[in-house]
Design a protein around this nucleic acid. Sequence first.
DNA 1: TCATTATTTTTGACAAAGTCCAAAACTCGG
DNA 2: CCGAGTTTTGGACTTTGTCAAAAATAATGA
Lengths: 140, 140
Amino acid sequence: MRDPEATLRQHDLPVTAQRIAVLRAVSGHPHATADDLTASVCGDLGTISRQSVYNVLNVLTDKGIIRRIQPADSPARYEDRIGDNHHHLVCRSCGRTEDVCCAVGEAPCLKAHSHHGFKIDEAEVIYWGTCPACQKKKRS
Amino acid sequence: MRDPEATLRQHDLPVTAQRIAVLRAVSGHPHATADDLTASVCGDLGTISRQSVYNVLNVLTDKGIIRRIQPADSPARYEDRIGDNHHHLVCRSCGRTEDVCCAVGEAPCLKAHSHHGFKIDEAEVIYWGTCPACQKKKRS
DNA sequence: TCATTATTTTTGACAAAGTCCAAAACTCGG
DNA sequence: CCGAGTTTTGGACTTTGTCAAAAATAATGA
Ligand SMILES: [Mn+2]
Ligand SMILES: [Mn+2]
Ligand SMILES: [Zn+2]
Ligand SMILES: [Zn+2]
């Protein structure tokens, strides 16, 4: 994120210290949880309420400025890499989350075979596996 | 599920009324939540504790007798259609969940492009959209 | 610049989904 | 039918997030 303040103005959002700090935290910590981000913002602003973190994350997500991903058995994670339809690779044991480029490119990147009359707008793909560190731990 | 009791014995699980009832409920209500299943079991057994429903669902899932799916913004859902690597199509507004055959067939059905050294064991795909009923509601 | 007004932030209660724990009930092999 | 080992139960607890009302702040424009 080049300029959080400009980004907020571009989306007609009043500029506040909390919004700037959360936006910077999301930028600097891809796939972080609300808790991670709260910690990061506190190290920056000194303090922020839990509710404000959720408020800001919700409004930024609604505006499409950031993206929320919600893998099973994990609190929601956030990132500012948007618009490229990329997917995620998640470690089953430690939750480490990595970006995976979409092979197809444009969304929705997969056609559902039998779609039951649904109007499909997204094909969400999560690759599940074990990260290198956790593979080592398991073997030892 | 032909014979819940036999299935339990095949997996060395003591046969209990609760397990049989939950297994039958999962069979009869694909993609039901723990709450849905509790209601269904109560109509069958008369009563069951909330904890038992979770106990049974967990042990059945661990043994691979049933499968758990956890779409965003929904409690976990369960099904006994396993081993065919099928995917799901979920309505964003009402949560209706339908099966979608996997185009590829065997798991993992997609190769991650850049896999960061992870050992991938599953490619989970969820198609998000709007079901016919909710499309109609939105238009009107 | 400063007052006004709408928006945001904060605090604290609340809710949903699920887990932990210990006591009571049950299953199953002998 | 007994006894050991599981399972079930009820209740407290945890995690992640939302709701609501009061206090603080940002934008507007005189
Ligand atoms: Mn990402
Ligand atoms: Mn299914
Ligand atoms: Zn890991
Ligand atoms: Zn629907």
